Computed example of a mutant assay.
Amino acid sequence: LVKVEDIVPVAQKPALSVRVSEASREADGTREIEFAAEGRSEAGIEFYSWDFAYDEERGFTPAVIMDKTGVQRAKFRAGEYTIAVKAVGSEGLENTELVRLKLNGTIERAAD
């Protein structure tokens, strides 16, 4: 008995992780945050899409649709935010990672 995946390669969705760091801080408290996505797929990553105001009820609504580098910067004031990034692999499969940020006196990545 032979497994199907031993005969025909089975596509798998990409693995995805996101690094978050503070790029700059303005006098009015606004912060520029850098997000660096790293997707991994045997077939390769085609592009990333970013939703900086993700809402589960509204669904994924990207502000940046076809980012080839995986690095984006956005400005935020104090508050809580959910950012969604989607990696799309060369085979068309995708994976989405949510980043929950809580900005106050310091930058923190909120616990999931």
Rank of each mutant, 00 (worst) to 15 (best):
D6K: 03
T61S: 12
V71H: 05
G70C: 02
L101T: 10
P9C: 02
V88M: 13
F76P: 06
V99F: 01
I45Y: 00
G89V: 05
R100I: 07
F76Y: 15
R73E: 04
E56H: 09
N104A: 15
A36Y: 09
I7S: 07
D112V: 14
E26V: 11
F35Q: 01
P14H: 04
V64E: 10
V20N: 07
D67W: 02
E57T: 12
K86E: 13
E94K: 06
E26P: 05
R40E: 13
T30L: 15
D51W: 06
W50P: 04
G70M: 05
K68T: 12
L101Y: 05
A53D: 10
G79L: 11
R100P: 03
N104V: 07
I83L: 05
T106G: 12
R40K: 14
G105N: 15
A53G: 08
A74P: 01
R40Q: 13
G29F: 09
S24E: 09
A27Q: 10
A63R: 09
F35E: 02
D67P: 06
F60C: 04
P62Q: 05
L16I: 12
E22P: 03
I65Q: 11
Y48T: 03
S24F: 07
A53C: 04
A87N: 00
Y81Q: 11
A63H: 03
R25Q: 12
E91R: 10
G89H: 02
F52Y: 09
S49R: 03
E26Q: 15
A23S: 10
Y48E: 06
Q72V: 12
D51M: 01
K75C: 08
V10Y: 02
K86P: 03
L93P: 02
L98F: 03
E57M: 13
L16D: 05
L103T: 09
A63Q: 14
T106Q: 14
E94S: 15
V8E: 01
R77A: 15
T69N: 13
K86F: 04
N95L: 08
P9E: 06
F35H: 01
E94C: 06
E26Y: 15
K86Y: 03
L103D: 07
V88E: 12
W50R: 00
E97C: 02
G92Q: 04
L93F: 08
P62Y: 08
A78S: 13
